[in-house]
C-alpha cells in the first residue's frame, strides 16, 4: 500500500566512507516514531522533472529513535537519487520520508546471528547490533568492502564487536572464504546478507551446497534500480498511454501520471506492486515472482521491471 510522508530536517551530514554519506534526520513537527532493527524508510526527493523515491535502511540505534540516520552510497550509474543526496542536500534542508517499514527484521528466536555485509549493505546491521548486544545474543559480522569506496563505521564496529568483527578489504586483497564462514555452525544459526546481488547469490549458493536449509538464509538486496530503455505502457482501464523514460521506473512513471499502484519496498521484493500484463514481453528484475510466473509473462513488478521491447499493455 502507498503511504504518506513525514517532513524531516537534515541535522547533520558526515562522509563515512569515500562514496558513502550519512544523513541524520529529525522530525519537523512532533517526534519520529520508534523503529525495529532492519527497518527502512523511503526518502522522497524533488528531482529535476519529477519525484524520486529511494529506500534506505535506518542505520542508528533503535533505542535512540528520535533522530534517524541513513547512509547513501553514490551509485556510479544512477537514476539520480544518490547523486541528488550527495550533491544537493545540505544541513538544514527539508526532506520528506515515509514511516518506517521492516522487511528484514532479525529473527529474535535465533540461537546465533551470522551477519554478512557487502559495502553499503552494512547499514541495516548498524541497527541490529545495538539490539543484539543488549540482549546478549551470540552474533558475528563479516564485512566485505573496498576501502577506496566503502567500509563505513569500521572504528565503531571494531570497538563494539572486537573479535566478532571479521573485515575483508578487497583493496588489501582480503577475501572472504564463504565456505569457511558457513561451515561448522550449530542449529538455530540464522544468516543475514545485505549487499550487492553477487554477494547474496554467492552466499545462497554456498549455503545450499553445504546443506543449509533455505529458511535460515535471509537477505535484503541493495541495488538501486538500474536505468533501461524507454518504452510505452498502455493502460486498458483508463485508456491512457504512459511514456516511461530511461531513467525512471515503470512505477514512478505511473505515479507521475496519477495512477496509484500499491507499493512498499520499491525494490522488487515485497510483492505489493504486482500488476497484470496483457501484452508485451517483460524484462523481470525483481526478487519476488517465481520462475513460472516470470516465464508466463502475465505479470510484472513495476517498481524494478521494465518492458523487454518498446511496449507493454497493463491491466490498470
Amino acid at each position: 500500500m502507498s503511504i504518506d510522508s513525514i517532513p524531516v530536517r537534515v541535522m547533520a551530514i558526515e562522509q563515512v566512507a569515500p562514496m558513502i554519506r550519512e544523513f541524520k534526520l529529525e522530525a519537523i513537527e512532533g517526534r519520529l516514531p520508534a523503529f525495529s532493527p532492519g527497518s527502512h524508510v523511503q526518502v522522497i526527493m524533488p528531482g529535476a522533472s519529477r519525484e524520486i523515491r529511494n529506500a534506505y535502511s535506518l542505520c542508528g540505534d533503535p533505542a535512540t529513535p528520535r533522530r534517524y540516520s541513513i547512509a547513501v552510497r553514490l551509485q556510479d550509474v544512477s537514476r539520480g537519487g544518490s547523486s541528488f543526496m550527495h550533491g544537493q542536500v545540505n544541513v538544514g534542508d527539508q526532506l520528506a520520508i515515509t514511516p518506517p517499514a521492516n522487511l528484514f527484521a532479525p529473527v529474535m528466536t535465533a540461537r546465533k546471528h551470522l551477519l554478512i555485509a557487502g559495502g553499503v549493505g552494512i547499514t541495516p546491521f548498524m541497527s541490529y547490533i545495538p539490539e543484539l548486544k543488549r540482549k546478549g545474543a551470540d552474533f558475528e559480522l563479516h564485512y566485505l568492502y573496498r576501502s577506496s569506496q566503502t567500509g563505513a563505521y569500521l572504528d565503531q564496529l571494531q570497538q563494539q564487536l572486537g573479535s566478532a568483527l571479521h573485515r575483508y578489504d578487497s583493496v588489501q586483497g582480503n577475501k572472504c572464504d564463504l565456505t569457511a564462514v558457513l561451515s561448522g555452525q550449530g542449529p538455530g544459526t540464522h544468516v543475514y546478507i545485505c549487499g550487492p546481488e553477487s554477494l547474496i547469490d554467492g552466499v545462497r549458493s554456498t549455503a545450499a551446497a553445504l546443506g543449509w536449509p533455505d529458511s535460515l538464509i535471509h537477505f535484503e538486496a541493495f541495488a538501486a534500480p538500474e536505468p533501461g530503455e524507454p518504452f510505452k505502457a498502455q493502460l486498458t482501464h483508463s485508456g491512457k498511454t504512459v511514456d516511461v523514460a530511461a531513467d525512471e521506473s515503470l512505477l514512478e512513471a505511473l505515479e507521475r501520471e496519477g495512477v496509484k499502484v500499491p507499493n512498499l519496498c520499491r525494490a522488487g521484493v515485497c510483492g505489493q506492486c504486482r500488476t497484470a500484463v496483457l501484452e508485451g514481453d517483460v524484462e523481470h528484475r525483481d526478487d519476488f515472482l517465481s520462475n513460472d510466473e516470470r516465464s508466463s509473462g502475465s505479470c510484472i513488478m513495476p517498481c524494478v521491471s521494465r518492458a523487454a521491447g518498446k511496449h507493454l499493455t497493463l491491466d490498470l
Binding site: G184, Q185, G186, P187, G188, T189, L210, G211, W212, P213, L216
Partner: peptide
Amino acid sequence: ILNDAPVTTR
C-alpha cells in the same frame, strides 16, 4: 544429539 548437531542436520 541436538545440542551438538550441525546446522545442516536433517
